[in-house]
Write a protein that binds this DNA or RNA. Structure first.
Lengths: 338, 338
DNA sequence: GTGAAAGCGCTAACAA
DNA sequence: TTGTTAGCGCTTTCAC
């Protein structure tokens, strides 16, 4: 059924090589010949076979993306940025949802090894540095989003966790809060550490005492934020504000507070991270830090595709994009008396 | 750098064919030989080249999915169902976000024609029947989600729009509503018609008069629902309930009501469709129809992959999955006096 | 500017 | 049970 390149060649009365040249816009073909070839292609309704092209050219113009859960808006938006850019540059995107399972994430690396993809983008990956380094050293192209690594050939795209976290805490401090709880994400993820670092930094610069009891661990899920809040409350250490390492957990805080009859923001102020759409719809609306998710995906993709081609790699290996605090109802009550 | 099959063959002192047999678990290999080969594979850290495999076998074990916007939870969850099932069956998934642009959707069909994918799943596609029929007739494998078509070789997976829409309207009628508005989605999409059909059906069976002025068109977006509501209100025809063809538009209705000081559900009841997570978080929480999105994706993928293989195709070509009305605050006020 | 021919890495038909 | 060999459909030297 499918026509092949030779069929076109025969019909146009040229060699396969010429057809190939036309297909790849080689400049060395006469306009006249090209036209004949194009017409034959049209006439036969010919479509170049991708697999043959891939095998011969040793590239697939496909990149893989590994994310933890496509149902989480953060990841979906990053994928959108990646896919959009890839489309514009004539690349395809294979999406790999790891379901939060490290073994699946590992498994997907096979796509790189068997050359199904030219490059693999890891979003918020928990894979060990050594593993990633080894991949890169073996000539595999990987890129990181929301995490950085010390390796010359691995481009990274991220926001400045320390910076925006410092901003969040300063915002709390400006409102008179002195006992601020922090709910961490997965401890293995760098973001968690860095956000904590920002928290500490802000306290330090204002000389506010730090209470380790006010740090709790979550898992970036609503349920995690919910139970962390419960644990915090049981400690009987007063606190008037909570910084949650992401919006999902902030929603969990909100839920716990509703149950306990704690009024937001009067009794407790909340700020999350990601600017998940839900934060705008919930009552009270949640303050959060906007992460330019689409941009994170788009910029890294652009960079990684440039590196795959022959274009000289310009620009920094690590791309930092700005994120900004969005103050909504959940942190809009000023405690003048404290 | 990369090792190839012959390298393994040489090291294991067997023929390439044997290595291939081992790789594909052909039963015709001695355990002993197989072990030797496996060891060589290990030793050389060999990974079979995907492109070569694809070219030779004429299959890529890859399916494409075309969706309108991955940022919309409905599509993201369907993709999750597809990807999850594909992973289990050792298939890859290329995601194609059409950004609501028909020309992009068209463009992605190229993946099928150039054999980049073995099959293509179209979600809520607006492509014309004839085009899809032609593709299928030309031996291309496609599958539909959220839409059906009359063609023997195109599997479809969908919910019964008429049925659940009838349920929604009955629910309104049971609460005493007699003037129920309907906000349609894109008129080109079958769902829109079928949901309207269910609306009419329920009215008819209860002999409730139908007012064409209470039908408005939206575009499945929040903004569309918002402006449709405004238009409805300007008509000065009383109505006490709104059925929106999806949750996004229901959110738009809610927004408009907030602005106009209309209280939900006392003055106006709202029901949407999709069970978007946001509907649970918003105040008042929105009644909606749960669509088993993951399942829609998973079932169709299973079916389509079965058809790609040699397994006899059992089960119906058109798979209908159950959706159910979820009553929340936005439609929980009974108008006993009407 | 165009063509001939080799080969990308694998699988499967056929032979042994 | 294992090996030989001919391609899958394309690109790309190298010649002309």
């Amino acid at each position: 059924m499918d026509r092949k390149l030779v069929d076109v060649a025969k019909l146009a009365d040229v060699s396969p090589a010429t057809v190939s040249r036309v297909l790849n816009n080689s400049s060395l073909v006469t306009k006249k010949t090209a036209e004949r070839v194009l017409q034959a292609i049209e006439e036969l309704n010919y479509h170049p076979n991708a697999a043959a092209k891939h095998l011969r050219s040793q590239r697939t113009r496909t990149i893989g993306v590994i994310i933890q859960d496509i149902n989480i808006a953060y990841f979906a938006e990053i994928i959108k940025g990646i896919q959009n850019t890839a489309y514009a540059l004539n690349y395809k995107v294979i999406v790999c949802d790891s379901d939060n399972k490290p073994e699946k994430e590992q498994d997907y690396l096979g796509l790189l090894k068997n050359r199904t993809v030219d490059a693999l983008i890891l979003v918020s990956s928990t894979l060990r540095d050594e593993l990633l380094t080894e991949l890169a050293d073996n000539g595999h192209k990987i890129g990181l989003i929301g995490r950085s690594i010390d390796h010359d050939s691995i481009p990274c795209c991220l926001t400045d966790n320390v910076k925006f976290s410092t901003d969040v805490i300063r915002h709390f401090l400006d409102q008179g809060h002195r006992h601020i709880a922090y709910i961490n994400g997965y401890p293995e993820i760098v973001d968690s550490y860095e956000r904590l670092e920002g928290y500490m930094k802000a306290l330090k610069e204002r000389r506010i005492p730090f209470f380790p009891e006010l740090i709790e661990c979550g898992d970036f899920s609503e349920e995690g934020g919910y139970s962390a809040t419960k644990r915090l409350l049981r400690k009987n250490i007063p606190f008037t504000a909570v910084y949650a390492a992401n919006d999902e957990m902030a929603l969990g805080v909100l839920k716990a507070c509703r149950e306990m009859g704690i009024s937001i923001p009067e009794q407790l102020a909340i700020v999350g991270v990601d600017n998940n759409r839900i934060t705008e719809y919930v009552t009270p609306s949640l303050s959060t830090v906007n992460q330019p998710k689409f941009q994170l995906g788009a910029l890294l993709t652009e960079k990684i595709i440039a590196q795959l081609g022959d274009e000289p790699d310009k620009g920094p290996r690590i791309i930092t994009v700005e994120s900004e605090l969005i103050v909504r109802e959940s942190s809009s009550y000023v405690h003048s008396s404290r």
